[in-house]
Amino acid sequence: MHDFDERLSHRLHELAGSAPDSAAGDATARTLIQRGRQARRRATALTATSLTILAGGLAVAAVVVATHPGASPVTANAAGDARTELVAAITASQSTTYQMNIRLKSVLVPGSKDTVSTGAFDPGAHTGYLRTPADEGPGFNEERLIQGRLYIGSAGVDRVLHFRRVAGRSETLRYDWSLGGTLTGSANPDELLAMLREEGATVTRNGNRGFHFEYTPKKLPENAVTDRVSGDITLDSANRIASVVYDRFVDWTKPGVTPTPVHMHVVMEFSGYGLPVTVQEPDKAD
């Protein structure tokens, strides 16, 4: 038995050792860097824009920028305008603390795993956290926001977090890792409505507790040819946002590259409204 194991090991080393010596030349390393940069840029560009637009125009606003504490919810008008009702729900959701679970899936990438971020946010106290596991391996990323002081941390295979402090004051968490791009926008109802109009988003009622939206961003990401976003928002019994589910489809082109269409599926769930959010300040940060 042991003899078999030993001989198998010897033969594997013999086979591996039979490979002619090969070194990664400088050109190879540079090619790898170029490919890595392209992959990184593509991932960022393809996610950031739609999310920015969504954040500015629609549902993602619910997790982006805090409204002023105590802001008055917008009341739906007599005609029951779906956009106004949606803004009311967003405002109601942002007037209190909440927990969130964000699941991002790249549908067209074979074998890709869902990226699931979990966190909580207190918009009034500018306090919260967001944890996102690495795509590969046991590492993870974690953001901690404590009264406007934002720390961004990464943990590798040893699962030990190394934090760096982001200069200045931050109003909200960043969603780069969970949603693929930094979100911008405002939950101010007036601004939100203005953006909805500007971007021409279609918002329709979907039952008693839901909205459906569709969107074609006017400003396309770099190299994108077409970009479509559509999704559904569901409210809870208190008319706060319970979930936002959307799909994004992007076709893109680039000389010399065989384009792969992008289809992302994002599920955001909100719960624990009103529960206290406490976040521990990191012991050490660069």
Partner: peptide, 28 residues
């Protein structure tokens, strides 16, 4: 190997200074 190293590059700045990079590359 090249595909795996590209993946490593995509995450290069996020990898911890204490990571065992060889073990991580092997896993990828």
């Amino acid at each position: 190997l090249q595909d795996s190293l590209v993946r490593i590059y995509e995450r290069w700045r996020r990898l911890s200074r204490t990571d065992d990079l060889n073990a991580y590359l092997r896993k990828v």
